[in-house]
């Protein structure tokens, strides 16, 4: 049996008769990076708040490290680091003092402050009041606070929200090395698939409070395989040419669409079209957006 770091059973939260999260069964393996995906308002933040004991579930249970959260909250939280939505900070204090305020509660060694500032690359700015920080720096300070207690589990709620591309890349690299270097299990939520697909091992997709997909990223890729689009000079004739050779294609505007085809098939199609004197303007891979993926996954799951 696998060792689940987080396991929720039938987790639900009701606000005024409406379910923000309903019947959620999350399973997160030790040492994994779990990408928690869903559009805005799907219930990601509500779930993470329940995992941290900030709000009480209406139904269901949360077990973290195999212990029930409602009974062992403090000993569990001692081993968890978190960053919930927008970073919280004390603007009038310096980065060091912000961490010191948290360290006094955690009881972590004082040297840990320099360590975490170093990890997130804020050592040079440590003495400046945080209110003058850029959003990216505040976000990194938030991650430093999450790491301060040397946690075994990190819960990061949209850690790259509002960051510029280089900041996103930096944070992504930072998160990637957590399991490898420190053996930390990470749950990272996002509304962008592209955001987690490079880091996460497992993804859970939540939609309107319900978990509609939970599997490894490889399985998700299989389900979400993109199609190839060819833009050619005479689409009608090209379609006919290909049909003669037994290659199925769909025409949409000036483009021909091919679903689920491998590299060799693409090469063959291009070759035969060129041989038939068609001009090929573009060969594009159409990757499905998260929204399309959602529709596909929801469509498959709903009837069962």
């Amino acid at each position: 049996m696998k060792e689940w770091v987080i396991e929720t059973k039938g987790l639900s939260k009701r606000y005024k008769g409406r379910y923000a999260v309903s019947n959620l069964n999350l399973k997160i393996e030790k040492g994994d990076i779990y990408g928690f995906l869903g559009p805005n308002g799907a219930g990601k933040t509500t779930t993470i708040r329940m995992l941290l004991g900030l709000i009480k579930p209406s139904n269901g249970s949360v077990h973290i490290f195999g212990q029930p959260l409602n009974k062992e909250k403090l000993s569990i939280l001692r081993r968890v680091g978190s960053l919930v939505e927008y970073p919280s900070y004390y603007g009038h204090l310096s980065a060091t003092d912000n961490l010191e305020a948290i360290r006094r509660i955690l009881g972590a060694p004082a040297a840990r402050i320099t360590e975490v500032l170093d990890i997130v690359g804020l050592s040079k700015e440590a003495r400046r009041p945080v209110k003058g920080f850029s959003l990216g720096m505040k976000q990194r300070l938030g991650i430093a606070s999450a790491l301060l207690g040397s946690p075994e589990l990190l819960l990061l709620d949209e850690p790259t929200n509002g960051l510029d591309p280089s900041g996103i890349l930096e944070i992504r690299e930072l998160i990637k090395q957590m399991p490898k270097q420190h053996g930390i299990t990470v749950l990272i939520s996002s509304h962008l698939l592209s955001e987690v697909e490079l880091t996460a091992g497992t993804v859970g997709i939540i939609r309107q409070g319900e978990l509609v997909f939970q599997d490894t990223i490889a399985h998700l890729h299989q389900q979400a395989q993109g199609s190839m689009s060819l833009i050619v000079s005479e689409p009608e004739q090209a379609l006919a040419t290909l049909l003669q050779q037994g290659i199925a294609a769909k025409k949409s505007g000036d483009a021909l669409l091919f679903a689920n085809i491998g590299d060799h098939a693409v090469a063959r199609i291009v070759k035969s079209l060129v041989e038939h004197d068609h001009a090929i303007y573009r060969v594009e891979e159409m990757r499905k957006s998260l929204e399309e993926l959602f529709l596909q996954i929801v469509g498959e799951v709903k009837p069962s």
């Binding site: 004991g53 900030l54 968890v80 939505e85 927008y86 919280s88 004390y90 509660i105």
Partner: peptide
């Protein structure tokens, strides 16, 4: 800065 959520997620 709604530091409550950070403070109350600490082991206290």
């Amino acid at each position: 800065t709604n530091a409550w959520k950070q403070l109350l997620a600490l082991p206290i």
